[in-house]
Structure formats: C-alpha cells, structure tokens
Amino acid sequence: MKYIFFTLIISFSLSSLVKSQSFSGTNDSTLTYAFDIRQSDNSTNTLGLDFNIRYDIAQLSGPKANSPEGNKLDLSFALAGYQDFVKEATEFDFMTLELNVLGRKYNSKPVSLNPVELIYYKDLLEKSGVDPGSLTPTEQKNLAAFTKKLFNGRQFLSYKLGYKMESNQSLSFNQHMLQAGISLEVPKLHEVFEVFFSETRSSDMNYKAQPIRLYAGLDYILGANGAKEQLVDSTNVVPRARAEMAWRTLLFDNFELRATFESNYFFDEGNLTTTPTNELINFFQAWLVLPVSTDKTKVMLSYAKGKLPPLYTETAAGSIGVSFAIE
C-alpha cells in the first residue's frame, strides 16, 4: 500500500550511548552499544527504540599490530534493530543478527623522511599542538603540503563474509543468509555533485566534501520461516544482490544535506513466494538539517520512499522534526 503523509513531530534524538570496553587488558576486543529514540524509517507518526550492540574481536590475523598497511581481519558479532513503542505498529519493527569476519585493505604510497625533515615536521607539529595559530604562513603551508602528501593515493577497502538473520521482533518472520560484501569510498564521484552544491556556499568556506560511500554485496538467503509475509520458500536458496550508498554535503554554509540509498535485487523470482518479484527494490532517504541555535538544537526535514528488508513494506513519508542532544 502506498501512502504519503507529512507530520510535525517533536522527536528526541538521545545521543548514542557508546561504551567501549577493553577485555584482557588489551584494546583488541570491544563491546559497543548505542540506543536512540527515533521515528521509524517507514512511518513518521510513531516513535521507537533503535538499538545497536556490537562485540568486535580485532585482528584475527595481519602483520604488526600497529601497522596500517595491508590486509587485516576482525571478527564481529552484532545485534541491531528497531522496536516501535506502538504495539500495533509491528510492521515497522525489525531485527538483524550478524556474525562476520570483517576485513580491510589499506595501502599508501611510501613516504620517507630524512632526519632533518623528520625533526622539522615534528617541530612544526609540536608548535601546532600548542597553538595552531602560532605557525607562520610558510610553516602552515609546508605542514599542510606534508599532510596532504601522506594521504595522496591512499587505497582503502573494507569487506566482510558471514552469517545474517533478518527478522521482526517477535521472530514470527525470519530469514537466514550467508553474506559477502565490499564497501569503499568512491573517489571523484562526489565532486560531480559538488559542482552544484559548492555554488551555494561562501567562497571563503573551507569545506571539503567527503566521498560517497558505497557497499555492494551478495546474500544467499537459505530459507525463511513465517506466515503470509514469508518472502522465500524455505526449501530454496535465493540469491539477493544489495547495493547501498551514503553521502552528505553542506548547503548555504550551514545546512547539512544527508542521503542514503539502498537497492535489493532478487535473481530468481521463481523462488519467491510473495512480492517482491524479479525487480530492483529501492529505498531512498534524505535529510536536510538546519541548525537553529549554538547548543546543537536542529530542525530536521526528512523524506523516505521505498521498501526495506525484511518485509519490504512500501512507504513514502516526509517529516519535520526538532532534534536536540542530551549528553
């Protein structure tokens, strides 16, 4: 069912409570959790609890612990989801459980400093650490050029392989899958968008837009349990391709524009017991964030349209909200 509505709400955006816990006296294993009270992605007239709990065991393999170069693997366990406060609004609840091997690849161009250069840049950093404003224009220029040189041509890629369960909160519907995917920052593409958006900013704004982030993955849905919402036949394997994008920029010096896009594609509609059929299933969401004071109070305009897994309930909704942080 398609529906479009706009509402005016006051939503609490409780700042995420993040707890990093080191175990066994090392920084290798970490428990983090975050809770937010927010609107559902699919509906603007209900509030719920967003939760994200992760346990990461870092560096299953790799070279020297503190070296950034090369491939490294981590193990990650994550539980995330959304529980609506309105008992009847269960169609918006979801939960994911994941166990993944997370990998990353990082390569950068070699930069070696001779002893004189090393002392020079360390002295500049010492001076910058005390007061960046005390650097002379030449020192600022040299330090900026050095920093830029360090990260020119840097290559970074993140990848994962693991198990995932998607379900509603009551577990009355759930589907299990093996997943593999890569994510990266796409170079240059954001500069195309920035041709327009940079025109809205003051010429003296020192704003550097971040690259568009992209995820591409393949899921093998092994089966599902559920009633009428059941998406796939429990005896069949259904391959599903997923692509995701996230991006943000600045408009008129102060307004943030954020956007995410997700697309799902099922390769074999013959194995699907209900919609969606063999088509691209998309979900788009955009936010315009307007600061209204210096104490982090913001007005947020958001718009969401499309379908999200696991139930692929279609929605189109806009909202206006006030966000403030409680720390």
Partner: peptide, 21 residues
C-alpha cells in the same frame, strides 16, 4: 553520518588507519 547500513563504521576504520600511518 549518515551510516552506510551494512558498514556503519567504515570511515572510522579508515580514519584510524590514517592516524596510524
């Protein structure tokens, strides 16, 4: 921000590696 749903900490990972470098 906004988070990439399937890799919500990608930029933090990259920034941490940059700082290590």
């Amino acid at each position: 921000d906004p988070a990439l749903p399937s890799d919500p900490h990608m930029q933090k990972q990259r920034i941490a590696l940059d700082l290590q470098r």
